[in-house]
Amino acid sequence: MKADRRPERKGIGNACSKAGARHTAKKRKHLTLSQKKSITGLIFIAPWVIGFIIYYARSLFLTIRFSLSDVNIVETGGYRATWAGLENFRYALLEHATFNQIFVNSLVDILIDVPFIIFFSLFIAILLNSRFKGRGLVRAIFFIPILLGSGAVLETLTLATENIQEGAGAMAAEISSSSGISMDYFIGTFIDLGLPTGMLDYVAGLVARVYEIVRSSSVQTVIFLATLQSISPSLYEVSKIEGATTYETFWKVTFPLVTPFILTNVVYTIVDSYTNSEVVTQAYDTAFTLYDYGLSSAMSVLSTVVVCMILAAVCMMISNKTFYYN
């Protein structure tokens, strides 16, 4: 076993030094340890670098080129792109029937959901981090949504959810007709109390989408949970000895240590909800049912640029308020 492992290793080692030698044949004697190490490091990441150049950088460049040209599919399966300037963007923004509306709606949805998902997942992570009976079971349940992420399974789940919600709605209607209680009545009461309508709409919208929010906040919960576990217990011990209440401990210890990951989670949430948004579906349909590659690329580029701008703005805002960074 050992005997045949060793030559193999030597072989690889030789190959490495050969690869190194090709680059620096003349200077070979002067190769310092750190240079050797940096070459090994480059070999380790080489597959990824090649992939990044071939698949990501090239594709990104091509997408931008497509968006600026009029793409015709040739019968042999290739394509011919002729320069069209900003025509595609103009069409998407000014003439396309639905793009504008879908685009704005998706953005608004993203911005509404993000804060709530963050608070919700932090809250759940704190709950799951405390000790109680059956914690393993509850955790297993809470991470199930990660498994059910996408595709036909998700569609069917959504359908089943709708059925349940319909059932609940029907039940509520039935109760309200017999007892005179209805949601509208409550909402009316809140409005009479002088609560702003915008806030009520926001809360009502969240309640209506609770299934989606729970489902899309599971990865964030995992990240927060991992963060909470990595906080050293001695900090809590100290604050306890110094006589801090639970409330103070949360705001002075837990929250500051969690802030960097609020940023991570915000980024993840925005990207995730953008990936599942309708703009993307629209771009996909434009490409593969209408075969209008130029327009589809223009839509992708537009939405990606806007989302990146939102990301940059949010990152600036939050990283100013980050108390601690590692």
């Binding site: 990824w48 990044f52 594709s59 990104l60 997408t63 497509f66 953008y274 990936t275 993307v280 990301l311």
Partner: peptide, 27 residues
């Protein structure tokens, strides 16, 4: 390992996380 352009390359990794694959689907 330390090698030239390490920070830039790792930045590219982060970009691949953030960039939705939908953007590059056609190419």
């Amino acid at each position: 390992f330390n090698f030239p352009l390490k920070k830039l390359l790792f930045g590219c990794v982060v970009v691949t996380i953030i960039l939705p694959s939908y953007t590059i689907m056609l190419p």
